[in-house]
Design a binder for these strands. Structure first.
Lengths: 317, 317
DNA sequence: CGCCATTGTACTCATAGTGAGCATAAGATG
DNA sequence: CATCTTATGCTCACTATGAGTACAATGGCG
């Protein structure tokens, strides 16, 4: 009699507006949030994607559009006590396949136990749009350096990772290292999931500095999704999956900034867009912005067929 | 009683020298080749990676070093009749997780039913080091265009894909579209796997033009691996996983060229390497090359800790 | 030995792309 | 109208990139 395998499907559904990037989260009994997820049904689901769409719809009423696979997590020890996944048969080995979905609209999900959450609630150190967050140098970096110090013969490796991934002394902040940063915090016992998973209490930091936890390994999946999206936005025109049909260039820029967690130079952003021939002006204007009316643009869908590789240029990207 | 799930692990183990890029392949009864693979054992394997290493070792004697996950394939209809996977329990739903491994050395595997195979045997259209292969314009493109023509209302989409992915009339050849190209051939019924999987005979092309098939969906996994590696080599210093400790810059360039399937400009390649500070000269020289002796270099392993993002620059890349 | 084929290495140069800034346009607000 | 706000056009220095030219150091061969 062999151990049965259960496949979990988890979805990171992303939307964004000028203010923030959002992830669709489900609410659980104890107040914790998680990602829409459910078990893959080998008899009923022809593909993972179909199964995923079904689950997301059932739990949030949302119908995903653009979807891509992220990663398959199968390690023992990372995932949670089985109880946490309400529908997992006990004794089964759980592996989980993460997906990323993008949508232009935060649909109404008020009828469900679900919310659109600014993802910076889970990763407060990731938002650099108004400069480097103070938490990094005030709270996170010192704690990580302490952890590195205690690393014995791994100390110098840990040190290097901390410096590299959090952009310490002079090193640049690389926005797509989201997962690496989260894993550092997890390994250092600073992410609250770490103490929860191991049963030990380790962190001495105020939890607020380290973001809200999610159930199971969902925050890890979310970190994976953010890193992947931040990378992809630069070399494929995926931002437009997050935009409505018509938008101003400033709207577009603010969405890109929200995703990257970085401020961009307006004029250069426009110049790059121009060259890439990804958008066309519609001749219509909107004065909803307060100042001079902005022209409305739309994505040139033909660009996809023309094989335009480029996405949106970003600084030091 | 629910359908059980079986997880297959498949490995693309890559090596390369000045002549060609190689993938480690296993030989099967009917002369067909495949990738090292086996079933994930939920009771015995703590992680996918460990399971994978075990299987690769058992089938080829090889011990993988650098390994990364590629993709998880779970769609019905793509995979093969179960019989083909010797150890799959009938009635189970098979999903398979593909991995990419890199090694600097084609180890001796003569004791096993395994071979190091130039991957161009499976993808003859991918080698552009000596110019664009003639098969593309003489055989592949016409056949694909014919397929596109028969696409009814999808004809124009098909057309666009063919032109974009194979770099037809004026469009650039994008080396990392390996998977897209294979999928086109598969969908068009030109890859011999397609007729095998569907039971119908469709291709009118001489099979040589379209490369050797592999068992199951292994050629798809190999295509995924090649595309991923070609992309990654440009922004992460992964080539060095394919190099011995000491090498000349020409060796390095030839390996990169083999992987990318493209010729590179020697002087510019060196300049880029210089700037990236990825290698250091050893002061030692080798005259094994025929002309002026070349200096030996080694990879600066510290570069990894310094977070050097850049890999090897490539033209139009 | 001298010449040539072969490979390695150092520069040069035009062009394009990037980061950063100034200047001006066109609306709203009071 | 003055001022604030946002949009848009343009310039400039600097760096990267694609493509050469020139020269250096070896082995092979007549």
């Amino acid at each position: 009699m062999t151990t049965p395998i259960a496949v979990g499907l988890s979805a990171v559904i992303v939307a964004a507006d000028a203010d923030a990037p959002y992830a669709l989260a489900t609410r659980h009994a104890d107040g914790a949030t998680g990602l829409p997820h459910g078990r893959f049904d080998p008899a009923g689901h022809r593909t993972f994607e179909l199964g995923l769409r079904e689950w997301v719809h059932a739990q949030t009423g949302f119908e995903p559009g653009y979807v891509e696979q992220l990663y398959t997590f199968g390690d023992l020890g990372r995932e949670l006590p089985q109880a946490e996944l309400d529908d997992a048969p006990s004794g089964a080995r759980l592996i989980s396949v993460g997906y990323l979905g993008l949508t232009p609209e935060r649909t109404d999900i008020s009828a469900f136990d679900a919310v659109w959450r600014d993802w910076h609630r889970y990763f407060p150190w990731e938002d650099h749009r108004k400069g480097r967050p103070e938490i990094i140098d005030q709270a996170i970096a010192p704690a990580l350096v302490e952890w590195a110090d205690q690393g014995g013969k791994n100390a110098s490796d840990r040190f290097a990772r901390v410096h590299r991934d959090f952009g310490l002394d002079g090193q640049p902040w690389i926005e797509e290292r989201t997962l690496e940063r989260y894993e550092l915090l997890y390994e250092a016992g600073l992410a609250s999931e770490a103490s929860r998973d191991s049963g030990r209490k380790r962190s001495k930091l105020p939890p607020a500095a380290l973001g809200e936890a999610m159930i199971s390994d969902h925050r890890r999946i979310l970190a994976t999704a953010i890193g992947r999206l931040r990378g992809k936005i630069k070399y494929r025109p995926v931002v437009f999956e997050l935009m409505p049909e018509r938008f101003t260039l400033s709207d577009l820029q603010r969405v890109v900034e929200a995703i990257l967690g970085l401020p961009l130079h307006k004029q250069n952003f426009r110049r790059a867009l121009d060259r890439a021939e990804l958008v066309v002006g519609l001749g219509a204007f909107t004065q909803a912005t307060g100042g001079r009316p902005a022209e409305l643009y739309r994505f040139r869908h033909e660009a996809l067929r023309e094989g335009h590789v480029s996405g949106v240029q970003t600084p030091h990207g």
